[in-house]
Simulated scan of single mutants.
Amino acid sequence: MKTKKISRMELARESGVPYTTIVNFYEKGTDNVKLSTLRKLADYFNCSLDYLVDDEYGSNSPLVETDSMVLLPIVGKISCGDGVFAYENIEGYEATPKEWLNGGDYFYLRAKGDSMIGARIQDGDLLLIRKQPEVENGEIAAVLINDEAVLKRVYRNGDQLVLQSENAAYPPIFCPPTGATIIGKLRMVTIKF
């Protein structure tokens, strides 16, 4: 609340969590808070559930947004209903320099497998994705196929999407117009050592 410079009343109004719950949780330290309430607060503050309830983090937590950093979710599973994407499994949050972001909404996916090694994308790499429904031919994008996000080079062949791996061991995937949905464009691969 100090970082966002808001009062308890403003937090209640903006997060949808009752004022008395906020007072009990923050001031009295009650541990009897519903998981749904914690999720609302975590979503509002863009932090993990652990950050809200674990004393180990304290005020020195790396999970605090600043003027130069923003927290973005690392998404484990994405679903799409009525054209609206839902993050069903958020593995955590990654502090990201605001200078990496150029308007729009962003999130991270974790690379799985070796299908994009030709583009220097390794299993486990964090992939910064900018949400957008279209990409240019040949750009690398996150594409949703049956509630699974895959990272491929995207080409259009009429109405059909052709999804190409960057590994000769994997054949292209040909998707009819309703068989795949572009989630967003790959903006950056982050590698931690």
Rank of each mutant, 00 (worst) to 15 (best):
K185R: 13
K112S: 08
E10N: 07
D123V: 14
I182H: 04
I140Q: 01
L126R: 08
E88T: 09
L41P: 00
E91P: 06
G29I: 14
K2D: 11
V135W: 02
L186K: 05
A95V: 05
L35D: 06
A149R: 04
T96M: 03
L161S: 04
L161T: 03
G81E: 02
Y44S: 04
P97V: 15
L127R: 01
K40P: 06
I117H: 01
Y26N: 07
E148M: 09
A180F: 07
V135L: 01
T181D: 00
A86R: 07
G118R: 12
Y87P: 00
G104N: 11
Y155C: 07
G76R: 05
A42N: 03
T181R: 09
G104K: 15
N102K: 15
E139N: 15
E166M: 13
I121P: 01
L49S: 05
A168M: 13
T178L: 14
K2L: 15
A180D: 03
V154Y: 03
A42G: 06
F25L: 04
C80V: 15
E136K: 10
D31R: 10
D67Y: 13
T190S: 03
E88G: 07
E136T: 15
G58E: 06
L41Y: 05
N89R: 10
R110H: 08
P172F: 09
Q132W: 13
L49R: 08
T178M: 14
A180P: 12
D82I: 10
Y108T: 05
E10Y: 05
D147M: 11
M116A: 08
G113V: 15
N167T: 14
R120Y: 09
N89L: 15
K152Q: 06
T21V: 14
Q132A: 08
